[in-house]
């Protein structure tokens, strides 16, 4: 017997549940863009080679183009449309805007989603390929420009906005450190 090639799937996106009948071939990226009119998530290559479709799935940055929508059921998906809270931009968004971390804007949502996750990953103590010594006794790496560049490398930008993007991520990271200190105090 031929298996059914579509399913009814509930996707949890930016805190809202959406029930969809989905062709199994539909990627999370196409479900967002073509079915839910959430077009902020961009399709740059559709092959996992550019990062433009980066979204957060259960808080972790993920390429929506290689994620089958049916397999993302019941997971918490956050897209660029869900980054701003209560009408206020996420600090990463604010920094991109003010420091001109964008030109054509097409890689921007992916860069921002990725940067938000980079700050989380760094806060969790994750090393990167730029980390001199990954052994835990060396402690978590400082989030230098070099660390930011390596961690953001899965997001290509053809306009060449990298320099401003790194500056924006560094500023958002510094702000996060500030507010963490304030909270601690």
């Amino acid at each position: 017997m031929h298996p059914s090639t579509s399913s009814t799937v509930t996707l949890n996106i930016n805190g809202e549940k959406h029930q969809l009948s989905l062709d199994h071939r539909t990627t999370l990226l196409d479900a967002l863009r073509e079915r839910l009119d959430l077009t902020g998530t961009k399709k740059g290559c559709d092959q996992g080679q550019c990062g433009a479709c980066t979204v957060l799935v259960d808080g972790r940055r993920t390429l929506a183009c290689l994620q089958l929508a049916v397999a993302a059921e019941d997971q918490e998906i956050t897209t660029i449309e869900g980054m701003a809270r209560g009408g206020e931009l996420h600090p990463v968004q604010q920094a991109f805007l003010e420091l001109d971390g964008l030109q054509c804007g097409y890689c921007t949502p992916g860069q921002i989603c990725s940067a938000v996750a980079v700050l989380e990953e760094h806060a969790a103590g994750w090393p990167s390929a730029a980390t001199e010594d990954v052994r835990p006794e060396h402690g978590p790496p400082e989030l230098t420009d070099e660390e930011i560049r390596e961690r953001m490398s899965g997001n290509l930008c053809r306009c060449g906005a990298y320099v401003s993007i790194v500056r924006a991520v560094a500023r958002a990271a510094a702000q996060q450190d500030e507010s963490a200190k304030e909270e601690a105090a």
């Binding site: 863009r33 009119d37 959430l38 077009t39 902020g40 998530t41 961009k42 399709k43 897209t79 660029i80 449309e81 980054m83 701003a84 931009l89 968004q93 991109f96 805007l97 003010e98 001109d100 964008l102 804007g105 097409y106 921007t108 949502p109 921002i112």
Partner: peptide, 21 residues
């Protein structure tokens, strides 16, 4: 001067050619 369409671009609201239903 920051880009006048910057807010739309950092929030995902800016629609590109394939994004009009």
């Amino acid at each position: 001067h920051p880009r006048v369409e910057g807010l739309e671009k950092v929030t995902g609201a800016a629609r590109y050619a394939a994004e009009f239903p």
